[in-house]
């Protein structure tokens, strides 16, 4: 479970271009369920996601993961939490160009220094699961949008994290691929994973797989809908 307590995030604090992205946000995100942060651009949903995923620290307030404060950890420990607890699927997938599909999938595991054969077998199994085994050696540049997203999901799962975080995952996908993504979310949920998604795509927040919808507006939580 992730708990946020009066979390505020200000960018460029004290400078003329200061932006208050989140104001006093308190929220509990349940484990094993699919939570969606929805809202228009600039509502603060992506900022909230970066704080929850340990990609940045809040300006004030606390974030707890299973009761342990993670918002004030030193960089080294934050990176470890990020690596072992969260798997990220970015909006533009952020695959590393020039490297092969399987290398991209394995990258989050490198700092852990696992056995090479085991790691490669794990990455191969994930690509098999997402029907991409035949493209393992290809460069990521040649993949379609849907394939890139599936590689990004495989990469997010390589360290077997409990939490999967996806930022606007269907922004660049057509209806068929969006449906495919929701199928994958369903499978992950069935496997016991906790999923947090930001989206302003109604195909996502209206999907039956979603358990909690957090509606955001101007850096605050407007409503929390539990289904």
């Amino acid at each position: 479970m992730i708990e946020l307590n009066e979390v505020t995030k200000i960018y460029n604090e004290g400078q003329p271009n200061e932006v208050v992205a989140l104001r006093d946000v308190s929220l509990t995100i349940p484990e094993g369920r699919v939570t969606v942060f929805k809202g228009p651009s600039g509502s603060g949903k992506t900022t909230l996601l970066t704080l929850v995923g340990c990609l940045a620290r809040p300006t004030s307030g606390r974030i707890r993961l299973d009761g342990r404060i993670i918002s004030a950890l030193p960089e080294h420990f934050m990176a470890a939490v990020r690596r072992e607890t969260f798997g990220f699927v970015f909006q533009r997938f952020n695959l590393i160009r020039g490297l092969s599909v399987i290398e991209n999938v394995m990258i989050p595991a490198y700092p852990l220094g696992p056995d090479y054969r085991g790691l490669r077998a794990r990455a191969g199994a994930l690509l098999e699961r997402f029907q991409l085994a035949h493209k393992a050696r290809m460069k990521t540049e040649v993949l379609s949008g849907g394939e890139s997203q599936r590689v990004a999901i495989a990469r997010a799962l390589i360290n077997d994290p409990q939490w999967i975080i996806a930022d606007e995952p269907t922004a660049n996908l057509d209806s068929r691929l969006a449906g495919q993504f929701l199928d994958e979310v369903r499978q992950l949920k069935q496997a016991g994973k906790s999923i947090i998604i930001t989206s302003h795509d109604e195909r996502i927040f209206n999907a039956d797989v979603v358990d909690v919808v957090v509606d955001m507006e101007d850096g605050r939580i407007a409503t929390v809908e539990e289904r």
Binding site: L55, E75, H76, A79, R82, F90, R97, I107, P108, R155
Partner: peptide, 19 residues
């Protein structure tokens, strides 16, 4: 800019500054 972004991706994926 591409290299800087790549460093950001690696850090987001759990790489540390030391890595």
């Amino acid at each position: 800019a591409g290299e800087r972004r790549e460093i950001g991706i690696l850090k987001a994926l759990g790489w540390e500054t030391s890595d």
